[in-house]
Amino acid sequence: MKLIQHIERWLRRILLAISMLTTAFLVVLIPLNIAVRALSGQGWGASVQIVELAMVIIIFFALAEAEARKEHVDVSLFTNMLGTRTRAVVRFFERLLYAAFATLLGYYTLLRAIRSFERDETMWAGVSVILQWPFRFILPIGLAALLLTIIVHHFKESS
């Protein structure tokens, strides 16, 4: 259990760090693109697609951290009215369903990523073509981390 907690924490932190760095990269890229466009008149053709791909990293790699910090919005008003025991039971089934949902979403995005890899999926970025499939794997990775966080934190809370 200790080991799993350890893995969960590190996985979550590494993914968060990548998410943060990606945003920092955008903060530099966007003004740079504007500056280059203003000075040379030549914009960076692929900037739209680079930003779109960056968004995938920023969001899916921070999903687990958002869960750990209880940032995902829920309505606790009604469950708070229940007795402690009932609340614990409701909470258990709610977490079970949430974990099942994360698993399902992770599974189908993984299948999608594999299909994308097999077809060597590409996308137009301005006037050039870039590889898209590696970015598809960000979704199942982020969702796997989310699943791990849901499980580990539920056991931490209830023990």
């Binding site: 466009r37 008149g41 030549q42 914009g43 053709g45 692929a46 900037s47 739209v48 697609q49 970025a125 301005g126 006037v127």
Partner: peptide, 8 residues
């Protein structure tokens, strides 16, 4: 000779 920009 045109400068091509991608605009969403």
């Amino acid at each position: 000779g045109s400068e091509i920009l991608t605009i969403a």
